[in-house]
Design a protein around this nucleic acid. Structure first.
Lengths: 181, 181
DNA sequence: ACGGTTTATGCAACTAGTTGCACAAAGGCT
DNA sequence: AGCCTTTGTGCAACTAGTTGCATAAACCGT
């Protein structure tokens, strides 16, 4: 039940159409809560039906026509409620860890290449986050909302850092392991 | 499509009944791929239908009767195939990060308590992992499969360490932030 | 004016995971 | 004997997310 709240947050930051939201979900919020345009359109429909958002007045509301949404007071209230509500952290659910565990019983053949590929992907993501940090959060800038957003970005940086280190470590282990088995 | 492979891995480590698997998923494999008993029973049915596993001979195969499964060669082959196959890493998908981002626009009221609760939960999980490390991976022990399993455990330890640090940091930030907004 | 690409919106079907409940046997308690 | 809890198994319905495809307007070159 998080996608609607991700959308409310994005719309509060700036009213947008479905496609604009989709674009913004490809970075920023989407870095830690990704969504496809189909999910977003569906959710916009629901949020509107529930009275949390409304379409900004536009002339011909026909198909293929841009339609922007803004958050209504009820939507803001719902978001505040959800943000403050207690929620349990989800346990880790990671395929690579599972594969490594499987490799311990069926052998490591073929796994090494994908580990290397993942390492590269995580390094790239890390570099992207660090670029954003340089650009959007220079040392002086720390208004309260900026500090919270920076904190979120730092979580991304630290997580990617963890993965690059862990994968590097794993590949070292593989270098020392006999091939197969 | 990972649950069946998690189950194959678990069954290769030791043939088990549905309930035993459920128990084992509450620790060990379940630490990074959790599953309920309903999921497990359903998946056992499918795996059996596909010829990847089979029920060990038991007398009365009635309801409420324990039924153990073992992995067939086809199952082992499928697991090896899946382990070696290239798979993209999933982007982060974390509710707490989303909530913090939302808090940047609707205010931080009520969030602090849950941050503290999460910190405690992650600290507890970290302690549990470290206990397992002490117990199952003493310095001397490093047969190839042990090293892989240890690597997986270390991922858990490092991830929980990250969260405890990040949450601590977040709470510090909150201490300095004015209440509300 | 025509045909191709891009922008923008959306439905329908499918897959994976979760929740809620039900049923049966076994063991103990009274 | 009758009931209560625990152990073990399982179905059905629901929710969230993904995949595949469809539609329409606008813009753009020829």
């Amino acid at each position: 039940m998080s996608l609607p709240h991700a959308i409310l947050t994005a719309l509060l930051e700036r009213p947008s159409s479905g496609l604009e939201l989709t674009r913004r979900f490809d970075k920023s919020i989407g870095y830690f809560w990704s969504a496809t345009h189909q999910q977003i359109y569906r959710e916009l429909g629901r949020l509107e039906a529930e009275g949390y958002i409304r379409a900004l007045p536009a002339e011909q509301p026909a198909r293929g026509q841009k339609k922007s949404y803004e958050v209504l007071p009820a939507g803001r209230a719902e978001l505040a409620r959800w943000t403050a509500a207690s929620q349990d952290p989800k346990p880790i659910r990671d395929v690579m860890l599972l594969r490594l565990r499987a490799a311990a019983v069926v052998g490591t053949d073929g796994l090494q290449a994908d580990l290397r590929r993942h390492l590269e992907l995580h390094q790239r993501q890390l570099a992207e986050y660090e670029e954003i940090q340089r650009r959007d959060f220079p040392p002086g800038k720390d208004a309260p909302e900026d500090r919270l957003r920076h904190l979120v970005l730092r979580a991304g940086i630290d997580l990617e850092t963890f993965w690059t280190q862990w994968l590097t470590h794993a590949l070292q282990e593989f270098g020392e392991l006999p091939e197969g088995s």
